[in-house]
Structures are given as C-alpha cells and as structure tokens.
Amino acid sequence: MNRKQRIEAKLKESLNPIMYLDLVDESYMHTVPAGSESHFKVLVVSDAFENTPIIDRHRLLNQLLADEMQNGLHALTLHAWTPEEWYAKGGAPESPPCMGGSKAS
C-alpha cells in the first residue's frame, strides 16, 4: 500500500461520513526524487466538521496522519470543510508553486 492509499484509508476510517475526499500527490511540484510521495493536498468534506473550528479540524487531520509525517511525509495542504463550506467555496484552490529547494530563484 502506498502513502496515498494509507492516507485515504485513515481518513475514511476516522471521518465517517465523508461526503467528498480528494487527495493529490503534489510531490512533482517540488524538488524531490520521483516517487517520493512527500507533499500532499487533502480536501475532505464531512459532516464531522460541523461546529468545529478550522484549527481543530487541522489538528485532527495532523493527529490522524502523524505517523506519516514521522516517516517521510514532508508537507500537507489541508482543506477540511463542511458540506455547506464546500458548496460555498466551489472546490479546492490551486496550490502555489514551490518556493524552496533548488527551484527557488
């Protein structure tokens, strides 16, 4: 099982019900070896986030994925929304280009 599959499984197991889950490996946008699976963007839409401040949602996701962060996952872009927020925002924003590593000018 690769990192993307493990992350997806952990989120689905812990955040029922999930209305929408989009998990994008953005490692290719960074200066890392091919296949690194080191940078991910997560958009998860769930009723589980109702009445929960955004900081607490992010803390929860970081706790769920702590073992991945300790074992090679370098960066997570998190979008943890209720269904209402998802409809209002119209989807996840694009990630900015990498500004670090050897790609920096």
Rank of each mutant, 00 (worst) to 15 (best):
G101N: 07
P96K: 14
A104L: 06
V32D: 04
E84A: 12
Q5P: 09
A66C: 06
P83I: 06
K10Q: 14
E13A: 14
P96W: 10
S27V: 04
V32I: 04
S102Y: 04
M19N: 11
L78N: 03
D22H: 12
T82E: 01
H39D: 06
G101W: 01
A80S: 03
Y20F: 13
T31K: 10
H58Y: 09
I7M: 11
S46I: 00
R6I: 11
D25I: 05
K10D: 13
L76K: 05
L65I: 05
P53C: 08
W81S: 02
P96S: 13
K10T: 15
L60F: 08
E26Q: 11
R57G: 07
Q70D: 15
E50L: 12
R59V: 11
L15H: 07
K12W: 07
R6V: 12
R59S: 08
E68I: 09
T52I: 09
S36D: 04
T77W: 05
E37Y: 02
P83K: 07
L11H: 00
W81V: 02
E37N: 10
M29K: 03
P53S: 06
T52W: 04
M19A: 14
P33H: 08
K89C: 07
L61Y: 04
L65W: 01
D67C: 09
S95D: 11
Q5E: 15
G91F: 10
A80F: 06
S95K: 07
D47R: 05
S102G: 12
K41Q: 13
W81R: 12
H79T: 12
M99L: 15
F49R: 08
V44R: 04
Y28V: 14
V32Y: 01
L78A: 06
E94C: 07
S14L: 00
A75Q: 13
S46E: 00
P33W: 02
I7R: 01
L76E: 05
L15T: 07
V32Q: 00
G72M: 06
P93M: 07
T77I: 15
G101R: 11
N2M: 13
E68W: 00
T31S: 15
M69D: 04
T82W: 07
M19W: 15
M1L: 05
L73Q: 01
A75M: 13
K4D: 11
H79W: 02
H58N: 14
E50A: 15
H39A: 02
E85T: 09
L73W: 05
P17D: 08
W86Q: 02
R3T: 07
S105M: 11
S102T: 14
P97M: 09
S95M: 10
Q63A: 15
R59C: 03
D25W: 01
L73E: 08
F49D: 00
L43C: 09
P93K: 13
A66N: 08
D47K: 10
M1R: 01
P83T: 05
N62H: 08
T31L: 06
T31N: 13
V42F: 05
F49V: 03
E26V: 00
K10G: 01
K12T: 13
A34E: 11
L64E: 05
L11K: 00
A9Y: 01
I18M: 06
M19F: 11
L23I: 08
E13M: 10
R59I: 07
E84V: 09
G101A: 01
P93V: 02
A104R: 15
